[in-house]
Structure formats: C-alpha cells, structure tokens
Write a protein that binds this DNA or RNA. Structure first.
Length: 879
RNA sequence: GCGGACGUGGCGGAAUUGGUAGACGCAAGGGACUUAAAAUCCCUCGAUCUCUGAUCGUGCGGGUUCGAUCCCCGCCGUCCGCACCA
C-alpha cells in the first residue's frame, strides 16, 4: 500500500491540542521530582515573532522536552517585556493607545508562538505592563528604598534628544541611543539611581563561580565593572603668591594606578567641573572661557571621543610629596573626567601616551622613570611613544633599581606615613568603572516610580497600602516629552505624611528594571508579594537561560544586582539568578539589491529567483527579470529586506521543519544562514522518517521490540543504543547540531535492515531489533520534532503521548564493541588497520601488529625501535 | 589603544581537546525507476600524480613530540567587546 506524504498542516494542530488537553507543560510547584528551570529571554511585543525568536525558543524547548523525558519537573514559562518606547511612538504616529497597541501585539505573537508547538507553561504568562506585575515592582522599589539601595542625586546624564529621555551608560552605544540611534548629549538632571556600585566587588568576584556561563560574557562583565587598584595621593598646594591664592584650598587629591612613576610627574590635570577649576576660574576670565569651551565641546559623547587633548594652566602649583623644592603646574584638561576617581590626575608623560601627547603640546618635561630590563640608561629616551611595560625604575631617587610594583609599595608605604592637614598623604584605594544605575525615564509607558514630592516633607514614599500607582488611561501624545507631566490631575496628590498638596513623581522606571526580576516572578506569578519566597527558593536559580549576546552586560548584570537586592529585602534566597547561560547566534540571510549602491533597491528573498549558471549563482527579480546583486550574509533586518518570517516556513513545511532546520548544521552559538535549500532538506528528512516509520508500522506490526547482541540484528541494536547515548549527551551540552547528525546516522543505519524486513528476508531477531530501533528513533526526534514524533508513535500503535513518555535508557553493553579496529601507523603515518578483541592485552596487540604485512614490509626484517600502543586508540610502530 | 574569539573541502560544519582529518547535512556530477517530470533509491565527491598505489593537505613560517586541527613562538587575516578610566 502506498504511503501518503506526511501533512504537517493537518497533524501539528492535532497534537498541540492533545498536549493542551492533558496540561502536560504546566509545572506544579508541589511536584516532588527534581526541578529544572529552563528560560529563554522573553520577547518585546513588537508585533511579529521573527525567525531569531524562533531559533531561541526552539533551543529552550528541546532542553525542556528532553529534561521532562528525563524525569524532571520542568518549568518553561513565557511572558512579555512589554513597556517601552515603541508603544509610545506608535501612539504618536497612529493615534493608538500604547496599552491597546501592546496587548494587540501580544495576542498576535502568542498565536505565532503556539504554531511552533513549544512546550510552554502558558498558565504562568504575564506581561510587564500588567498592573499586577508593575504593582509588585513598585513594592520591590519601596523595599529597596527602605534598605538604602536607592538614591536620588543630580548628575550628568546621557540625554537622548530624539526619545527625549535619559539613558543609562550601558544604553549608549558608540555615542548613540541604543534604541533611537540619535546622538546622545550630556545633561545635568536629578535622577533616581539603584546603588549597583555597592555590589561592584561582589558582582566581580562571583563571576568566578558561574561555571556554566560563556567565558566571553564573564570577561565582558569583568571589563565593564572595571576594578583598579591604586593610590589616592593628596598633593599640597604651593604656598601662593597672594595673587594666585585659591580661597580655602590646601591640597589636590588625585587617584593613580601608577604611584611608582611619581618622579616622572610633570603636571597635574583636573576636570573642567573640578571644584578647584571652578574656584580658580572665578577671578580668571580666560580660564572661565576655556572651561566653558570644554563644556560646549562635550555636548555629545561622540565629540568627546574625537576631541583634541587641550589644557589650560590655572597658575596654581602643587608641591611634590617627596621634594619641597619641586612644584608642578595644575592644568584644567578636557580629557579628565569628573566622575572617575577624584576628577584629577598627575601626568607622567614617559609612562602614559595621553600624558605624553599633552606634555609635548605644552612643552612640559618628559622624564623616563621606567626602562625595559637590559636597556642602557644613558641612551634610553622617550620621544613620542610612552613606555608602559615592566622594567626597572630610573631617575627616581630612592626608587632606582626597583621593579615598578616594588616601587608602588614603597611609595604607598612612605606617603601613608606622611600627613597633610591631619590626614595621611596617601591611601590605597580600589576604584570601579561601574556607575550607579540611573533608572528615571521621562516617559509614559513604564512602571511609575512610587514616590511623592512634598514641599514640607521632601521626598516621601507612597505607602504600600496605596499601591499600585496606576498609569492613567486618558493620556495625550500630541507633543514630545513626558505625557505624565502634562496630565491634568494625575500628578496631584496629598502628601502621605502631612496631608498637604503634593506632587507625584512623574518619571517612570527604565524598562530594564522590568526584566531584572521576571524570572523570579514566574516561579509564583499569582503571589500577592513580588515573589513567593518558598517557590522562588525551590525553582531558582534558572538552570538554563538562553538568549542573545547583546544582553551580555545590560540585562544580565542588572539581573545579578537585582537578585542580590531581592535577597537583601527577603524576596529570594540567592545571589546568582542564572546557573547556566547560553548565548545563541543570529539567523542571517544574504541580501539582494537591484541598481547601484546609492540608489539601489533592496529585494526580499521572496521577490527573487535564484539561478545556477555555469556554477555561478545569480539572483533575478521575478517581477522585472532584472539581475540583482547578491550581497553578504547579514542579520535579518527590515531595512535590507533580507527577512524570512516564521510563517513562510510553517505555512508550507510546518513547525517541525523550521525547528529541525534551525538547529541542524550550525552550532547554536554561531550564526545560522537561512537558505531555502536547507529548509527543503529538513523537510525531506521529515518525509523520510515518516516513510520509514510508516513502512515499519506495517511490516513490524505485532513484533515486540528487543535488542540483539550478535549478527545483523546486533548491528542494528548497537546503532540504536549508541545513538541514544550520544544524542542524550549532546542535548545536555546543547550541541544540537551534533545530536542531529547522530539522528541522521541512526536513520541511515535503519534503512537497509528495514528494507530486508519489508522484503521478508529478516529473521525474528532482526525484526525485533528493527522494531526497537524505530521506537528509539521516534523518541530521539521528539525534542526537536515533537509533532512528527507523536504521529509516528501513534502510527506504531502507541496509546500514550511521546511528550509524556520517559527518555529510553541505553544498554551499556551495546555501546561498546567486542572487536575494535585499531589504526596502525608506521613512523606516525597511517598504513592500515588491525581488528582485534577489545580486551586484548598490550602484548597481544604488539604481536598482532608486527605480524601485519605492511608493517613487516616497512620494517624490512629489522626489529622496530619502538612500538607505542595507546589502548583503544591507535598503534604507532617506529622503524 | 586595551581585551577577547576565530581561521578545516564548492558550502554549513565534525574530530572522544595530543592518537584514523573531513562524521552528518547542503550543493554538484553519474546511474536506476518513469512515456516524461517530480518524488524516491544507489554510486562519486580535499588536491596532485606515474591512479588496485603514493605524495601533499586544517590561514602562513618555525618549534616540541613516536605522533599536532589541538601545545609553544612569530606573522597574516576576519569578527566581537571596551575605550580620554588616570
């Protein structure tokens, strides 16, 4: 009887309904089995699921399905990172309310995800814009305030002029807003901050324990936190000419990581915002003008990066800590940052390229103080390249001859003992690059910050009983800026302390706050408190977190901070939220363009026909017949139109094909190229499995599965059990491409024996082994192609669902061969093989090897110099 | 500038991290079946040569080793992160 083609369109919804009916993917917090929490970074509801999401969620789903089959109580939830600018932009452009726009998008995207057949616990779904969710976030905020983890301060902030809001440092990429792409400006504003710097050392130290995180991500976080060990040195101001006196100032505090180079110092430089600079400018119009210039030059981060190094001599002098007769000039310099260290440095031109450029420009002395080992001091000079390496100290008086790190300690020791005012002249100090996390955003579509400003009482928290602070629904988007500020009534409120008229905080929280704790909320989304600490303790940490590398710093560092802050406030009982982290690659596609670079037209993959002419690929625009230029592989983007939507695949081939293709070939951490041939190939394999299983279902009806150790049947059983072992191991390692290769191998190994069965040539042992092999195959494909697996299982006569069946156990005796094939080398080059019993001892192996024809020929009758036998691996005869 | 990763057939990639280089898939070529096509099945597929065999071959040049895709040194190239951080 002819076998009908497998029809995913009819089959897939059927099995999705069957899973739903049995609630197979809903996790029970009281289930006694060991837990496993797998999570993919939740999507922003932009409107459509794109293919990158599909790849991400498929990986998580394979892990979830596999772990479920291995007997774990699996939590695999999904939600929506739903606050943010695009909803407001849509409101301004299309007059849709951000809330309606967001929830409509969520509904559409939920349907798209359901088509993929993901084993998600939809009962726990939430969106961060749900009042229920941001209510709990406000509770957390107030708890953090109580514990002193929140501050309000005025500071220079990154201002995005297009979105008209503040951005955190992490959200500024190449001087531009991460979302709008607009050039970011510096502005002084009063903002709310989370004190992430309180945890800087802990966040750094704990990276070491994150064994299941990519090294790359840990390194990026380490650099971002940017710890440095140095010395705070207080330089006395020189006793002034009466005219050069700066009122009330006696010292200049600088931070340095190179105190060893203190005898190479030739100038001091302070930031334009430094108090000393401001004071000095009061009676120095030229300096005031320079400071003003620096401020104007520094309006954009990008301008800062390319600005020339400029300074202005304040006329102030400091005295060298080790020599009363040595004074150094104090400059205001445009390259010194007020918010790092003390906003002041000492310049050592010979040991720092930037200081050298500055010294050369302003004619300041350059004294080499560190010389490479073995160099001649008489001829060693620094002209226009600073020396920053290790070596020996020179021109440094009592430090001469020391190594720089010895000199560091010596300087620290001596200056710690000297005093200035009534403080030591120097202190060892650790500095971090990491800044506090500014969370104020001047936007409507975010979580309101639950604080009230009262003229008498100052800033007062909203009492918990008054929560949630809801976003008003009646809101206008006719002008840029913060709509909450313009709302006629919302911000008017009584002070909870004195009852007088007061004003609500109209800033909302950075959306990264929303995503910093959603993984904890998933453990008990129904809880009245932000978390149910018992459930959180049980489920957390997330065993396997999967998402894009673009969140290596932002989201992951914030979440690590938040988990610590939640522990501090009693909401969770751990510091590290994500035990295992995996960063997956992108889905890329080549681009097609008609016309020249400047006025060309991008074409979508569906608008071109690909031809193969004399081995050269050509792309032709279907509508016009014009030839298009095939461009390189790039991340799918709307602007270049090289996108493929998940529907284009699922509508034709079904979800299983999309899932299978997405995971085959490319390792999951690398980019995968979407090709039509690849998708077609994946679909061919689905049909092949279907034919194979359908045929087997007929020819093996009534046969009971059994493994065999010997003969043809043994070969089949060994192939099946070896595949079972390695596919399991590969999935544990997230090596999906390798798991898939092993599945192909098993399918290939079963094809010929199944033909023999069909032709009636098989004995009962072979039939039983084939039956078992086919059943194993069905279980192996299930994590990746769950719908096909169910259909196959059903066809084979299974009465239950594969999704609720355990992962089969392999027989250890079937994954090792009793005879092994040892490659035999002569002088390190392979000359042949030796087939011998697996348990043969070294003597027997050596004897057998030396008896081989090609070995004897190579030896020419002489005795070998050496025979190296690596058990189970290889034999090398050295002639 | 600082830090990091990577480089293997026509292509995506494997190789138990010192032990048979190229598993598995895609593409290509040949054949079978068919009136024909699609589908399917079988075979070939790193290069060169004196072709039942041999030599070369994992970006390039050295080194260590019985043996190197893997370890060491020096180059070249690609990609990524950070960047006036004192």
């Amino acid at each position: 009887m002819a076998i009908e083609r497998y029809n995913p369109r009819a089959t897939e919804p059927k099995w999705q309904k069957a899973w739903d009916a049995k609630k197979l993917f809903e996790a029970d917090n009281d289930d006694p089995r060991p837990k496993y929490y797998v999570l993919e970074m939740f999507p922003y509801p932009s409107g459509r699921i794109h293919i990158g999401h599909t790849r991400n969620y498929t990986m998580g789903d394979v892990v979830a399905r596999y772990k479920r089959a291995k007997g774990f109580n699996v939590l695999h939830p999904m939600g929506w990172d739903a606050f943010g600018m695009p909803a407001e932009n849509a409101a301004m452009q299309n007059k849709v309310h951000p809330k309606d726009w967001t929830y409509q998008n969520i509904a559409a995207m939920r349907e798209q995800l359901k088509v993929m057949g993901l084993s998600l616990d939809w009962a726990r779904e939430f969106a961060t814009c749900d009042v229920d969710y941001y209510h709990r976030q406000q509770m957390l905020f107030l708890d953090f305030v109580e514990k002193g983890l929140v501050t309000r301060k005025s500071s220079k902030v990154n201002w995005d002029p297009e979105d008209m809001t503040v951005l955190a440092n992490e959200q500024v990429i190449d001087g531009r807003g991460w979302r709008s792409g607009a050039l970011v400006e510096q502005r002084e504003l009063t903002q709310w901050f989370f004190k992430i710097t309180d945890y800087a050392q802990d966040l750094l130290d704990s990276l070491d324990q994150l064994d299941d995180w990519p090294e790359k991500v840990k390194l990026m976080q380490q650099n971002w936190i940017g710890r440095s060990e140095g010395l705070l040195i207080r330089w006395p101001l020189a006793t002034p000419d009466p005219g050069k006196m700066v009122a009330g100032e006696h010292e200049l505090e600088v931070y340095t990581t190179r105190p060893d180079t203190i005898f190479g110092a030739s100038f001091m430089a302070v930031a334009a915002d430094h108090p000393l600079a401001k004071k000095a400018a009061e009676d120095n119009p030229a300096l005031a003008k320079f400071i003003d210039e620096v401020h104007h030059m520094g309006t954009s981060v990008a301008a800062l990066e390319t600005a020339e190094k400029k300074g202005f001599d304040t006329g102030i002098r400091v005295v060298h800590p080790f020599d009363d007769t040595w004074t150094l000039p104090v400059y205001v310099a445009n390259f010194v940052l007020m918010d790092y260290g003390t906003g002041a440095i000492f310049g050592c031109p010979s040991g720092d390229q930037r200081d050298l450029d500055f010294a050369n420009r302003y004619g300041l002395p350059v004294i080499p103080v560190v010389m490479p080992e073995g160099e001649n001091q008489g001829s060693f000079q620094i002209i226009d390249e600073a020396y920053t390496g290790d070596g020996v100290m020179i021109n440094s008086r009592f430090l001469d001859g020391m190594k720089p790190d010895q000199a560091f300690d010596e300087v620290a020791k001596l200056l710690e003992q000297k005093t200035i005012g009534n403080r030591p002249m120097a202190e060892r100090k650790v500095n971090f690059r990491l800044r506090d996390w500014g969370i104020s955003r001047q936007r409507y579509w975010g979580c309101p910050i639950p604080m009230i400003h009262c003229e008498d009482c100052g800033v007062v928290p909203v009492p918990k009983a008054d929560l949630p602070v809801r976003l008003p629904d009646d809101i206008e988007f006719d002008r840029p800026g913060n709509p909450l500020d313009r709302h006629p009534t919302w911000r008017h409120v009584k002070c909870p302390q004195c009852g007088k008229d007061a004003r609500r905080e109209t800033d909302t929280m950075d959306t990264f706050v929303d995503s910093s704790w959603y993984f904890a909320r998933f453990t008990a989304p129904w809880a009245n408190d932000p978390t149910d600490p018992k459930a959180a303790t049980e489920w957390l940490p997330v065993d396997q977190y999967i998402g894009g590398i673009e969140h290596a710093i932002l989201h992951l560092l914030y979440s690590r901070f938040f988990t610590r802050a939640m522990r501090e406030t009693g909401h969770v009982d751990l510091a590290e939220p994500f035990k295992g982290l995996f960063t997956q690659g992108m889905v890329v596609h080549e681009t097609y363009r008609v016309g020249s670079a400047s006025n060309g037209r991008w074409l979508a993959p569906s608008e071109v026909r690909l031809e193969d002419v004399d081995g050269k690929r050509r792309a032709i625009e279907i509508a016009t017949g014009e030839e298009a230029v095939i461009g390189p592989l790039e991340k799918m983007s709307k602007s270049k139109k090289n996108t493929v939507s998940p529907e284009e695949i699922t509508d034709g081939y079904g979800a299983d094909t999309a899932r299978w293709f997405m995971l085959s070939d490319s390792p999951p951490e690398r980019d995968v190229e979407w090709t039509d041939e690849g998708a077609a190939g994946a679909h061919r394999f689905i049909q092949r499995i279907w034919r194979l299983v359908s045929t087997a279902a007929e020819t093996l009806a009534g046969t009971r599965p059994a493994a065999a150790k010997e003969g043809d049947a043994g070969v089949v059983s060994k192939a099946a059990h070896k595949a079972l072992k390695s596919v399991g191991e590969d999935i544990e390692k997230l090596a999906f491409n390798r798991a898939i290769a092993r599945i192909y191998e098993l399918a290939n190994a079963l094809a010929t024996p199944l033909n023999e069965v069909a032709e009636g040539k098989a004995d009962p042992a072979l039939k039983a082994a084939c039956r078992q092999g086919v059943e194993v195959l069905v279980h192996l494909i299930a994590p990746v192609m769950p719908h096909l697996a169910e259909e196959c299982w059903h066809t084979l006569g299974g009465s239950d669902l594969v999704a609720e069946r355990p992962w089969p156990a392999y027989d250890p005796s079937l994954v090792v061969d009793s005879e092994i094939v040892l490659p035999v080398q002569v002088n390190g080059k392979k000359r042949g093989d030796l087939t011998i019993a697996r348990d043969a001892d070294q003597g027997a192996v050596e004897k057998a090897v030396l008896a081989l024809d090609f070995v004897q020929k190579a030896l020419e009758g002489k005795a070998p110099r050496k025979v190296i036998i690596v058990p189970q691996r290889i034999v090398n005869v050295v002639a």
